[in-house]
Design a protein around this nucleic acid. Sequence first.
DNA 1: TCGCTTTTCCAAAGCGCTTTGGATTTCGGC
DNA 2: GCCGAAATCCAAAGCGCTTTGGAAAAGCGA
Lengths: 343, 343
Amino acid sequence: MGVTLKQLAASLGLSPTTVSRALNGFPEVNATTRARVRDAALKANYHPNTRAKSLATGRAQAIGHVIPVSTSHEIVNPIFADFIAGAGEVYSRSGYEMILRVVADADEASAYGNLIARGAVDGVMVHGPRVHDPRVDLLAGLKIPFLIHGRTSNVNAPYSWLDINNHRSFHRATQFLLDFGHRRIALINGLEDMDFASRRRNGYLEALASAGIAPDPLLMRQAEMTEPYGYRAAQEMMQLPDPPTAYLASSMIVAYGLRRGFSDLGLKLGRDVSVVTHDDELSYLPNDGDVPMFTATQSSVREAGRRAARMLLQLVTDPDCGPLSELMETSLVLGASTGPAAR
Amino acid sequence: MGVTLKQLAASLGLSPTTVSRALNGFPEVNATTRARVRDAALKANYHPNTRAKSLATGRAQAIGHVIPVSTSHEIVNPIFADFIAGAGEVYSRSGYEMILRVVADADEASAYGNLIARGAVDGVMVHGPRVHDPRVDLLAGLKIPFLIHGRTSNVNAPYSWLDINNHRSFHRATQFLLDFGHRRIALINGLEDMDFASRRRNGYLEALASAGIAPDPLLMRQAEMTEPYGYRAAQEMMQLPDPPTAYLASSMIVAYGLRRGFSDLGLKLGRDVSVVTHDDELSYLPNDGDVPMFTATQSSVREAGRRAARMLLQLVTDPDCGPLSELMETSLVLGASTGPAAR
DNA sequence: TCGCTTTTCCAAAGCGCTTTGGATTTCGGC
DNA sequence: GCCGAAATCCAAAGCGCTTTGGAAAAGCGA
């Protein structure tokens, strides 16, 4: 509980009005008084009460993030931490607060409604969109700026989004493996009701199709992206009569699982079997160096957080700036995990 | 922007006072009117404006979390996501908001001051305490309830904390390896200006000492806990004239790095070399099954988040309930990564 | 029915800020 | 030295809620 505007004003022999205007840079106040006010504010460690301010102005100066936790698996996607770190940087710089809600995905809809009806936020960031995500129509109806990290389909309302080019990434990765002579390429995907996973699958299928290869259901999996998931996929698929020679992994974590699976089978990555993974560039799982461990489609999710936050803030400041969108391309970096198809 | 109290009251032909009291369960309102009010509120989708409410009551109904991002390495500790998921559960249930700030660790002090002076939060959760953390004295001076996830030393003010028994964990883990006949045990630690890493180191050293073994600086490392850090540690230490036969890892991520390092050297975990790691039970890196991959000192950081949040809320509701603290013991689970010292 | 206690409701002030609509002072131009 | 305009400042209302201090209505025993 710091000093209040009124107290500060009294101590200066000024009215609250003038002090408020002095601090907020309004023109109708003498330069010398302004300096005097600023000095006093600094000295008294005055910070305007956020609640009072936003009540008076009608702007909350806060952005809401709703983090879904899948009820079935209780898994928190590790990319949230980095995304939020990126977004948080931008918010702090712009004087916005980030308010976070962790909700079981079933309660997500009500979480948004609640957050907004209470006037707690000026805008909302939507995480983990599904292929057909009802939240978009819901939020559009609530008349509040929002931005999706990812995209969705089969939705009427126009919406703003920032996504990476998942389709192209996995199309390219598949093509890369095909060029190396691989014909049996496995896809170790995330849950395909998630929009990103669905697009990746499509990219993969298209590349196969244009190479005249029929997809093999035995080589396609989807699940929560844990390390053991990758491990099991590797172990089991290698038992197939006609095992894959290359794998597409949906995340570094899964790729690590794959790697361990192969290693336990005595197979060497890049020689006996190839892996291309998507890499969100999480800070504690760097995939760099002269020769990165994995060949990967790379895109920094932290940078995505920064950009998404900037877009959302723009949407908040100028609600009519129309639906915004940005498609980030990934870069395909060559690592040690790929090589020509063994034959 | 939903309906306001005043509008709701007008539509019911009641005063705002009565409506407020009806909704907040005060006794001085007729049961039938209360029912009428509740119905109307529901139908109108009325939610009290958080800002107005907290301005009137003086309570923010929010908890602040300040996430430090090490400026040098730009690394976000992956445990934050799970800790926050746990804490978030508790906050939602108790009607508290979680407000998050991501700050470069240099600006951390001012972030707290700012957050509190603005009246934005009723309490603060402190993450990633250092061995001697100035934030404790700072927060104690600010007269606001706070709780540290971890502990710190050399601090005057009493404070509340929740921690795992890092000392005992690593003492026990070391002892376990000693019992297996290992004499050359390496410690692949986190940065030792962090309190948790310092305690682990002490536990390790004590166990060595009581076995009459002098610590070897060549076998002790500290750094940010990334996967490549573990990898390099494994590769380099195995080149030593007298290499370690067992390793203590500070996190699963580091343990994965170690594993990869050994595997590239053709060494098998549990047979050629032993590893005990600490496992925070992150959802996407489960270390379970009949025989977990790693022998580990386990403790759920998600559960820690839940408990810490509950403690902090208690501190907020009843500021005089004295400094609270809880020391969570870890369990040592036997996995496939340990075996008797090869000789 | 009267006087008293309870019950049930409300008017108004206030939380800390912004902002509208003046009031007062200062200043340039003649 | 006088006048209108520009420069400075301020009083007061209001944001949406809670809460104090009554007032009116209802219930009760006699």
